[in-house]
Design a protein around this nucleic acid. Structure first.
Lengths: 343, 343
DNA sequence: TGATGCGTTTGGAACGATCAAGGAGGGTCG
DNA sequence: CGACCCTCCTTGATCGTTCCAAACGCATCA
């Protein structure tokens, strides 16, 4: 019926076409695709052959309409900050695409308004264009999570609900304090005693978390921290300034930084002062960005297990969208320290 | 009719719900959304109010089914090469998301099998999950373009059809030779005479293109090139080795590189030999990656206008998908040189 | 023989939107 | 006055799939 002669030859075959060729009903073809167990094996092979012969794939729109699901996961993709070393989100996206594909989902990117973090979500939600969201950027009191929860939108957050311990949504995060603890311990083991911290301003939950790993390790090893910490903006210039001041006033032999961007600021200072990085002064960054991997002599950095994060995120999504929905709460993963030339 | 009591309260409103509330027919609501000009203004406002009151957004699946279009653009998203400085694709994706969103399209990511560049396309195409593709990675005789063309799949390539001048598909690319010409001229203007080239192996069309910008500029300025060129793999280690050999054997005072990754290799060599980068030896990279932006003292690099590329890609897509389809051929854009501390 | 059951297959009715015609209603013209 | 057009809006069919309930063939059992 749909193979009307004169129809555009490139129009893809439909369920009805396959059914006709195989000599069965539409529903049987549908079952062959979705519930092969329901068919007698000889019927199944016959239908399979017809499917292969025509090169049939179920029409996504029709299936989505009927099943009320799109097999799409929405991800807000904001422009990367130029001038920073942070391509972390991108690395995560790559992992997410891989993992969710294995689970039968594709990733839909939509742009984010920098001023309004909730923009874009609403329309995709109401038009049922996506089944769920993955929310990144949950830092610093970002209203995304709370907003999504209030809309009863299915979503998984990459990042803890810092400001709301009662939040009921599933999340996956990396233990930043454990990361800086690894870094600090490593430096202490190398013999450093005056180890400085360069992080973000106090309002940043993530920044304070990472800072706490440094400070608690220093304390537990009986080393001083006073005068050795600095809180600045996320930029190379800030890291450069801060490290200059710290060198002048506190004389540290090593720096632990909240990000690779800040660590690169330290590298600038060292290079300007002709200090041998790694020999005279050690530096550790955070994120294991591409910069850390290629800058001479290689920046030691805390690496987040983004592949695992993606796996856990997808696992949580599957729970969320399953029938019946499976409960799942927060997952906290441990980072590792990648040692390179800077210490 | 669809507001059956007992239905899940979170089920989104439909066209019929809006129609009932506004006291008009479904089609009128549809027109209010898609062809507002067809309605009398008082009817339009009445419908608009009903839409706002219910928070209605057209169901994507239903619309897609009927209109045979998904408003989605497929993009194969392969894992980034670790250890290289090349986050260029990611920067492009960001621009593409922005631009295509403005044109009413969203970006769908799907994973790519590294061994089979055409994997993934077929299913999305046959299931009409996407309206068109954007093909990147068209380097080095990649069969993607030819394959897509043979399937009559609508797509726009980021990258010229190097090995097939007769290719009929639209493409957008950046003039690599013009970029290296900018770099080489800049170095010559600074007084450099022995300027080396580090690029990729001869089979790489892109590599040869970029190399030609260097060589033709050298020749036109009456400067020697023999013994000053090297072709290696895309890796920091390769760039490091090649620059070491070149320094020993040809004594260049400047390097032009086919990528930031290779340029970082040069930086490694200079740092090992205690040569002052920028003062003793100049370096220019290609891609203006985040690495170039943050490495001390800042890597001068050729920057591809990826925002413009995205704009042109979307423009071509709109032509391709328009009624009637508009012809469009190749677009070649000019890069710019971002001068930083390395020269 | 006819009722019961099970495994398999079938036809009709959604899902929610747009397309293609087909009406009201009012104004203009011969 | 009726034919005609124009504007605005409505009705029924349709896109391709899955859900639902019913029907089928066949064997078993009373």
């Amino acid at each position: 019926m749909s193979r009307i002669p004169g129809r555009v030859p490139t129009a893809p075959p439909t369920l009805a076409d396959v059914a006709e060729l195989a000599g069965v009903s539409r529903q049987t073809v549908s079952n062959a695709v979705n519930n092969p167990d329901l068919l007698r094996s000889d019927t199944l092979t016959r239908v399979q052959e017809a499917i292969d012969e025509l090169g049939y794939s179920p029409n996504r729109a029709a299936r989505n309409l009927r099943t009320r699901s799109s097999q799409l996961i929405g991800l807000r993709f904001t422009p990367a900050q130029e001038g920073t070393a942070n391509a972390m989100v991108d690395r995560f996206v790559h992992s997410l695409v891989e993992t969710s594909s294995a689970a039968g989902y594709h990733v839909l990117l939509f742009p984010g308004d920098l001023d309004d973090p909730t923009a874009g979500y609403d329309d995709l939600l109401r038009s049922t264009a996506v089944d769920a969201f993955v929310a990144t950027d949950t830092y610093l009191g970002n209203p995304q999570a709370a907003w999504l929860e209030s809309r009863r939108a299915p979503f998984v957050a990459f990042g803890r609900p810092w400001d709301n311990p009662d939040a009921a949504h599933p999340w996956v995060d990396v233990d930043g304090a454990a990361g800086t603890e690894l870094a600090t311990s490593h430096l202490i083991d190398l013999g450093h005693e005056r180890i400085a911290w360069i992080g973000w301003r106090k309002e940043s939950f993530i920044g304070e978390d990472r800072r706490s790993g440094w400070s608690r390790t220093m304390r537990s090893r009986g080393l001083p921290t006073s005068g050795l910490a600095s809180r600045v903006e996320e930029s190379v210039a800030s890291g450069r300034e801060a490290s200059g001041v710290l060198l002048d006033e506190a004389g540290p032999t090593a720096f632990v930084c909240a990000s690779d961007t800040l660590a690169m600021g330290v590298m600038h200072t060292l290079s300007e002062r002709n200090l041998a990085v790694g020999r005279d002064v050690a530096v550790v960054g955070f994120d294991d960005s591409q910069v850390a991997q290629v800058v001479p002599p290689g920046l030691t950095s805390v690496r987040q297990p983004l592949e695992e994060v993606a796996v856990e995120v997808v696992r949580a999504l599957e729970g969320l969208l399953g029938h019946p929905p499976a409960e799942s709460r927060g997952v906290l993963l441990a980072p590792e320290l990648i040692v390179r030339g800077t210490c």
